[in-house]
Each structure stands twice: as structure tokens, then as C-alpha cells.
Design a protein around this nucleic acid. Structure first.
Lengths: 338, 338
DNA sequence: CTCTGTGCTGTGAGCGCTCACAGTACTTGC
DNA sequence: GCAAGTACTGTGAGCGCTCACAGCACAGAG
């Protein structure tokens, strides 16, 4: 790899000189190769190979007014941040999907108000072509704020307030819950309780709706406990509360795997065998589900696909196409806890 | 917020006109405010506020040849990727630490060879001022490759091959292992086995070294099983193997919490009570440790601090200072499994 | 009163690219 | 034979910023 003289990075001008063509031809050769003769194209490619040339992103950005960069905004109160198992699947998958379109992903976290301002300043600053927003709680002020910047945005998970009309991609939480509860009913369980997720999140709301869809009037009030969050500790507390309220429960639908894991612990301590005495179903198919004892029956969200479609939708919006939200099917994964 | 005429984003020229000063003065006012009179400064700030002006990052980058951007490269074979609990702590923490210095974080994944090439092209392309490298396996070819680009890099975790002299930040795995094994010895256990991590990773190597440090000649060969990776399944397999080899084991030191969780499952099925019959110690203090049953005694790595120091070291290298690697102390977290 | 500093300010050049336009050469159809 | 394409190419301008330089006013020292 011969370095250009002076050891500064080669520019398009250097390539042009080496290939014996002009700046414009090099630029065309680099961007699709329309209107470039085969010989010029080859010469440019050779020069690029010889020098290890790469276009200067800043210069290109400045000229095109596009950055080929997208920001992934994680808007969560700090505590949830690390525990959310979805995040660690979603993020790499988005990175991957974007890379295929030669887009880069910038990660920003918006847990505090100061961070939110920083994100908004950044987005408004025109640094990115679009925003992938992951925010679990409804009424998140960042949603309308980003919308107002006019920068394309796609949200992960249905916004509780759909009035903004921001496109989203999500798993079908409601139908997923139905699949699980239907499965519990068909397995012969009669008294099916639920540990519902927080009702300020679409996941929490929709999974409870699915539970009610199947059980109808059998969905008795005292069999429903709303957890503070989707975490393990909340599962422990909720399960204790349920055992307190009702002794004849023979199945639990927990709105997340972590909640289910908490329930499992309480049941074991109470001497209730799973699934013999009480069946337990989770949601997410996270790593917790597979490593729980017994391994959890759960509902799998197609997170990798959610990521791919979020990227697809966002890029479409960036191109100026009109798009609509997408809701992807979930799948019941039966293991030994039911 | 009055928009500039024509609804295009305001430029530094617009601000200059509004504030009644020149481009240069605005630029100075924006960057530290040296050599700017109080009245000019105030006028510029007012204009910025009125227009919602933000500097164009591409233009600034082009002029300064710096991007205020760092790339976080996750170099892992795909399977490990999602399961690694450290990643989901490290990444947000790095983002956070960088934000405080007004740096942005770009995430790239280098699982395949094609992805590695993409990362290298990107880094070579001068898109970023530095690289934060997270690579668990030794002999990763991306390390020397990035080093050769001349772009500043800091690695997370000791490189097995230290000949390159790339600065790293890591937890003191060896001493952490010593803390755990010492604790097991002091609790009266006599036959302490270990489920070692893969020996092509610094964590795997150093934690086994720590185990040997304490047990000396008592570290009998048949009490050591090397797991294929740090995951749950490997823990299941390793524990089964250990039970097969030796029946008088009364304590296990597993090189990760997931490995320990796998061991826990096997022990329960074998009818061995934890910690009564067999004590089990993990490593990482990940969410698995807290939700395991019984909750795992483990070794906490100061990951948030690792992230902060990685950023600190990297920024120092970028500024041209000479730095040295840092090894941070771990802490034993005693729960009910020992 | 001149000289040398010490703020502060404006200006030109240039960072490396793309895009529109204006060529040039070579076809093809009549 | 010439007109009207078609394919490729070079050039100028400009994206929005920073940086070095030069200019200016005003101070205090000689």
C-alpha cells in the first residue's frame, strides 16, 4: 500500500491524478459508476486499491447534506436500562441491518432530562438522517419532541399515544398473550392468574388485554396483579401477593420472563411444584427463560426481525416514501414450566 | 424560534449577520470565547438562542480533521454476542462517559470477516478519532489490524498477546478469582473444583490462575474442567462431567455466573443441596447471579468504572498523551450459594 | 509624540467532496 | 451529408466551518 507523498491521507484529487482522469470521474466511479467508461472505472479502482483510499465522510456529508448515519435512542429510566434483555438483541441487529445499507449507528441514551436535551440538540443539529427510538414507557416527552424536529423517526413498540402518527414496528403483544393463555386453558388449567406488566407501557397493556381476550368474564379481578416493572424483584412481590389472595391458582401468565422467574422462586419456596401444582408462562424468550428451572414456556418476540423492519421502515421514510407501521407475529415456545 | 428565511438551517453566516459581527467572531464565541468582547459574545448567544442554531458537524469535521466521534467495536463470534451480560453494562456506560466530553459513540460489530473489513475501512477512513475495542478472545486479528491504522485504540480486557503494547483497562480477574477461592477455603470447604472459562480468553486464563494461586498443589487436575464458553449450557455440561469425575466435591468456583447457573441446575437434579452439600461461586455479578436460586455468591467487576476509565484513557491517547493500562480491583459479593 | 504591546475583529483560503453544466467524441437516422 | 442524439468527461461553484493572518483601536511606556 503506497502512501501518498507527505503521508497525508489520499484525497479524491490524488486518485484522479493517479488514474489519469478528473475529480468528477472519480466521484462518479465511486458512486455507482454510471456514465463512466470501463477503462476509467478500472483505473480508478486500481488507484483506490493502491492507495487504500477511502472517501472523507465529513466532506461527502457536507456536500450531500446527508450523513448516512442514524441514531439509536434508548429512552429509559436508568434502572430498566441494563436489565432489559430486548435491548441487547435489538441493538446489534439494528447495527447489522444498517451496515448492509452502509449506514452507521450512533447510540445515545436519554435517561435524564439533560440527556434528552442533548439528544434533541444532536438530532436538530442535522447530524443524523434518522432516529430509531426505543422507549418503553408511554407519554415519553421525547417522542413528540423528536417528531417536531422533522427528522425521520421510527419507534420500536407501539406508542401508547398514537395521535402523532409516528410509524412503529412491534411484536403482536396482544396476540402473543392470547397464545399463551390459550395454551394454559388447553392444558386443562382452570384458575389462571396473571402478573401484568406496568400499565404505562404498551407491552404491559397489550399483554393484559390478550389475557382478558381469552378468559373473558373468567378474568377475575383478584387473579390480576400489576407489577411495578418487568423485573425479577417485581415478580417475587407479585407472586407473593397472588398466593396471598388466592390459594387455588393452578397457572400463572407472567408478562415477562423475569417476572416469571421471580414467580418461580416464590413458588418453590412455598412448596408448589412447577408445572405439577402450578404452571408458569413467561414472555420474551430471553436468556432467563432458557436458564430458569424448570425452563420456561414463553412467547418469543421476533426481535431480530423487528430490528430489520425498523431499519427498513426508517430508510424508506428517509427516502421520502410513505410507510405504515408493522406488527409482527409472536410464537409460543413450550418448555417444561407448563 | 424564528426560522431563517427560506426555512433552510441557519449557518454561521446567518448568526454573524444577526449578531452584527463577523463569521470569525461567531466561531470564536462558539469555541470557548477567547478573544471575544462581552458584548459580541452576548449578541452571538442571543442569535443562537433565537434561531436554534447548531453547528454543522460535517463542516466542522472537515475543517478541523477531527470528528469528536469514537467507535465501539464489539468483536465477538455471533453466539457469544447476545449472551454476554457485560456488554449491556459497558456500552451504555461508555456512551455516557463519552457524552460528558461531547463525543459520540458509533457501534460496530465485527463477528464475521466481512464485518471486520468494514470496521477497518471505517477506521482507516478517518471517520473516528479513536476506537474502544471489546474483544474477548485472544489472538483476535482485529487488534493488530486496528493498531496498524495508527488510530488511537484502547482495549477492554487484557490482550493475551501483550506484545503490541495497546493500552487496556480491565478488572483484576486473577485477584478476583483468588478472593472467591479464598472465601471458599475459609468457609471450610476442602475439595474445591473449578469450571474454568475458555483458555483463549484473558478472563478464562486469569481466573484459573487465581484458583491455582490459592490452592497450590491441592489444585488437582481432575477438579478442573474447562468449559467451551462462558454460557449456561457449558456450565451444565461441565458440572455433569465434574460429578462424574469426583463425588466428594464440596465447592465449585465457576468462571462466570452463567456457568454457575448451569452448575446449579445439574446439582439440583442430582439432589445435592446448595450450599449445604456443595457451595457454588460465580463471577461477574450479572443479573443471573441475583436471580439464581439460591442467589449466587459472585465476584463483582467494576464495569461502569472500566467503561469510564477506557474513555479517559482513549481521550488521553487522542490528545497525544502517553498512558498506561489500568487494572481495577474486584469485589466479592457474598449471597446464599456459599 | 512615537513606539510597542494587547485586545478584539474581519477576511481569505482551504478542508474534500458532489452536483450541474458545458463541453467533446462518437453514433445513428435520414 | 448533416442534424440530433448518446456516452463519457472536465470544470467551477459551493456545502459550512476553522484557522492564520492582517488590521484596527486603544492603552501605557519611553
Amino acid at each position: 500500500m503506497t502512501r501518498a507523498i507527505g503521508d497525508r491521507r489520499p484525497t479524491i484529487e490524488d486518485i484522479a491524478r493517479m488514474a489519469g482522469v478528473s475529480r468528477g470521474t472519480v466521484s462518479r466511479a465511486l458512486n455507482g459508476g454510471r456514465h463512466v467508461s470501463a477503462s476509467s472505472l478500472a483505473a480508478v479502482q486500481q488507484a483506490v486499491r493502491d492507495t487504500g483510499y477511502t472517501v472523507n465522510a465529513a466532506a461527502r456529508s457536507l456536500a450531500t447534506r446527508r450523513s448516512n448515519t442514524v441514531v439509536f435512542v434508548l429512552s429509559e429510566p436508568g434502572e430498566r436500562l441494563f436489565s432489559d434483555p430486548n435491548f441487547s438483541v435489538l441493538l446489534p441487529a439494528c447495527t447489522h441491518a444498517l451496515a448492509e445499507h452502509d449506514f452507521s449507528l450512533i447510540l445515545m441514551i436519554s435517561a435524564t432530562e439533560a440527556e434528552r436535551d442533548r439528544v434533541l440538540r444532536y438530532v436538530r443539529g442535522g447530524h443524523v438522517d434518522g432516529v430509531l427510538l426505543v422507549s418503553t414507557h408511554g407519554g415519553d416527552p421525547i417522542l413528540p419532541a423528536i417528531d417536531q424536529t422533522g427528522v425521520p423517526v421510527v419507534s420500536c413498540g407501539r406508542a401508547l399515544d398514537e395521535s402523532l402518527g409516528i410509524p412503529y414496528v412491534s411484536a403482536n403483544d396482544r396476540e402473543g398473550a392470547r397464545q399463551m393463555v390459550r395454551h394454559l386453558v388447553e392444558s386443562g388449567h382452570r384458575t389462571i392468574a396473571t402478573i401484568a406488566g406496568p400499565q404505562d407501557t404498551p407491552g404491559g397493556v397489550d399483554r393484559l388485554l390478550g389475557y382478558r381476550d381469552i378468559l373473558g368474564r373468567r378474568a377475575r379481578k383478584r387473579l390480576i396483579v400489576e407489577a411495578a416493572d418487568f423485573g425479577y424483584d417485581a415478580g417475587v412481590a407479585a407472586m407473593a401477593e397472588l398466593l396471598n389472595r388466592s390459594s387455588d391458582i393452578d397457572a400463572i401468565f407472567a408478562a415477562s420472563d423475569s417476572l416469571a422467574a421471580g414467580a418461580l422462586t416464590v413458588l418453590r419456596r412455598a412448596g408448589r411444584a412447577v408445572p405439577h401444582d402450578v404452571a408458569v408462562g413467561g414472555f420474551d424468550d430471553s436468556s432467563v427463560a432458557a436458564t430458569a428451572d424448570p425452563p420456561l414456556t414463553t412467547v418469543r418476540q421476533p426481535l431480530a426481525q423487528v430490528a430489520r423492519e425498523m431499519v427498513e421502515v426508517l430508510l424508506a421514510v428517509i427516502r421520502g416514501e410513505t410507510v405504515s407501521s408493522r406488527v409482527l407475529p409472536t410464537r409460543l415456545v413450550v418448555r417444561s414450566s407448563t
